[in-house]
Amino acid sequence: MSPTPPIDAALRLEYVADFEYSYAAGKFASRFMDALRTEARIQGTRCDVCDKVLVPPRPVCGLCSGRTVEWVDVGPSGVITGYTVVEVPFIDPMTGFERPIPYGFAFVRLDGADTNIYHFLEESRHDKISIGMRITAVFKPAPERDGTLADIIHFRAEEPAADE
């Protein structure tokens, strides 16, 4: 009998796999993205039971388990409910390129909505961003929109901050 001998160096095995997917957006996200692309409209669905408007749209209201039955326009303006300024560079999955830092990133409660979406802010200076601040969506020009969330470039202050 011989015991397991000690090892000189611990083995590590590199593994690279390309997990490709073709995601079906489905009925609700497809219509949501189509309205962004064709009309620069942001839409949600209203719960038939608790009347809350859910953005992005979905078939079931998680809050009360009711069904949504009505599509409604929301935004394009709303308020910041939370934000951060990102200072670590990373590859923007919407463009494939590194997103210049710093940039603002916010939870946005669109007018008429009862849930948040999150998106980029045009502004990245801490002293120009605040919770409760009103902002509005900036869309790409129609020919450039492709039916993705990138059709909204970012949100910017509804009243531009005065330069100091």
Binding site: A24, G26, K27, F28, A29
Partner: peptide, 12 residues
């Protein structure tokens, strides 16, 4: 291929 629905919609 149920590409008409997202998986949550399929489950629904």
């Amino acid at each position: 291929d149920r590409n008409d629905v997202a998986y949550a919609e399929l489950l629904l």
